[in-house]
């Protein structure tokens, strides 16, 4: 009697579970050891003060998932930037922030750090694209963006 219950429940779980999450998340696809890492996101405005920025960070590597967003350098961007919480667990995020400190940074500024997990055999590859950077008046200014891997360790 009990065996019938167990068999029926296992069969139902086997049928239902694989298809229940149609929006498959990257970390559930790839196999391999789970590793965590972080990368700094750096915006360089040269001599112009950085009043605001908006950028996209994404990875096409299988098994990569963003797990956390951290603020950047004080005093301009110490708090985590604005981001969509639904980006957590996915492989793409839009980050944005503006300076309200009254002491805008310029030059090479670490505006945020992105923490991620990966299950791929090869290291995760990220791409960053700057959507807009502006000075303290809100006027768009030219700037470059780069990302620097901080570390990676296995769980």
């Amino acid at each position: 009697m009990k065996r019938r219950y167990v068999l029926a429940i296992l069969a139902a779980a086997a049928v239902v579970e694989p298809g229940c999450d149609s929006g498959t998340r990257p970390e559930q696809v790839a196999s391999g050891p789970l590793r965590f890492g972080a990368m700094d996101v750096i915006v360089d405005t040269g001599a112009a003060p950085l009043g605001a920025y908006q950028l996209t960070v994404a990875s096409e590597t299988d098994g990569v998932a963003i797990v956390g967003i951290e603020g950047g350098d004080a005093p301009a961007f110490p708090e985590p930037p604005y981001f969509d919480p639904q980006a957590i667990g996915r492989n793409r995020v839009i980050l944005a922030a503006f300076d309200s400190s009254g002491a805008p940074a310029h030059g090479r500024v670490r505006v945020a750090s992105v923490h991620y997990s990966e299950r791929s055999d090869s290291p995760a590859q990220f791409q960053a694209a700057l959507q807009v950077a502006a000075d303290t008046t809100g006027t768009p200014i030219p700037a470059t963006i780069s990302i620097e891997r901080v570390n990676a360790h296995e769980d």
Binding site: R4, Y5, L7, A8, I9, A11, A12, A13, V15, V16, E17, C20, D21
Partner: peptide, 17 residues
């Protein structure tokens, strides 16, 4: 048992989706 399996399947769907 089939009814129990149906309840289990519904629970899995509810928790995941």
């Amino acid at each position: 048992p089939a009814a129990a399996a149906g309840v289990a399947a519904a629970a899995v769907l509810l928790l995941s989706v």
